[in-house]
Every structure is written in structure tokens, then in C-alpha cells.
């Protein structure tokens, strides 16, 4: 893959009302340092705002950061809005305080492609995304 010609574009999004942005910002920076094009939405986004930004910015990856316990409502809603906007192929990742049971449900339902939780190293996220796009080429 020609890295210069085609950087992976990632939207890091903070949907919902919680203000815990430490994880989102650390991940955004790590992805940028790993050579990706990163757009960060800022806080307190509605699902509609997240989906609209994803469309406008024409991203390859949407990464949600949710630490308020609202992931079972917000993640499916955003996935649905992305599908409606013909963004079915976007790689959809969810990070934050996601209990294992919920993580399994989100993946089984086809909502999320992968879930990342506290303690996961930054490289795990970077490697996961790179691998997805390497195999897609």
C-alpha cells in the first residue's frame, strides 16, 4: 500500500454526555503518530453528529470512546446511522468501559468490529487497524 498516497482516515468520536476524554485523546494521538489521518470530534456528540462527521470526513475507521455505560444504546444507534449513509464498510471500533458480556453482544450483533478496553496497549489498536487495511489491499 502506498502510505503517502493513501493514509488511513480515522474518526475518534466521543458520543453521549460523559466528559472522560483521556482515552480518546491518547488514542487519537497514538494513531496520528502511527501515520494515520485523525479527526477528533470533541465532546458531547449526538449519534447524528458522529455519523454526519464520519460521512463528511470520508473516514475509513470510526472509533467511539464511551465511559458512561451508555454504549448499548449509543453504539448500535451510530452503526445504524452509518449504514443508512452507505458507510457499511467503515471499520467500527468501540473503546471504554465495556463489560465483557456487552462486548460479546456488540460483536455478535455486527455492531462493532472490535472492542478495546482499559489495559489494552495502544499498539494493539494500531496493529489491528493496520492489519485490516493491509489485508484489504
Amino acid at each position: 500500500m502506498d502510505v503517502k498516497a493513501k493514509k488511513i482516515r480515522v474518526l475518534v468520536a466521543k458520543p453521549g454526555l460523559d466528559g472522560h476524554d483521556r482515552g480518546a485523546r491518547v488514542v487519537a494521538r497514538a494513531l496520528r503518530d502511527a501515520g494515520m489521518e485523525v479527526i477528533y470530534t470533541g465532546l458531547h456528540q449526538t449519534p447524528e453528529q458522529v455519523a454526519e462527521t464520519a460521512l463528511q470526513e470520508d473516514v475509513d475507521v470510526v472509533g467511539l470512546s464511551i465511559l458512561s455505560g451508555a454504549h448499548m444504546t449509543l453504539a448500535p444507534k451510530i452503526r445504524h446511522l452509518l449504514n443508512e449513509k452507505d458507510m457499511k464498510d467503515v471499520l467500527f471500533l468501540v473503546g471504554g468501559i465495556i463489560p465483557e458480556e456487552d462486548a460479546e453482544k456488540l460483536i455478535a450483533a455486527g455492531t462493532a468490529d472490535q472492542i478495546f478496553t482499559p489495559g489494552d496497549p495502544l499498539d494493539k489498536i494500531i496493529d489491528y487497524i493496520n492489519a485490516k487495511f493491509a489485508s484489504a489491499e
Binding site: G16, L17, D18, H44, T46, L67, S68, G69, A70, M72, T73, L74
Partner: peptide
């Protein structure tokens, strides 16, 4: 915390959660 009532649309999925 954010000044929304439980029946506000922005509260959906967040009521009583954290």
C-alpha cells in the same frame, strides 16, 4: 450532571447508568 431531565432526547441510554 449535564442539566438534562431524564426525558430529554440527549438522556437516552444514560439515565441512572453512572
Amino acid at each position: 450532571i449535564m442539566g438534562y431531565d431524564s426525558d430529554h432526547e440527549r438522556s437516552l441510554g444514560e439515565v441512572g447508568r453512572c
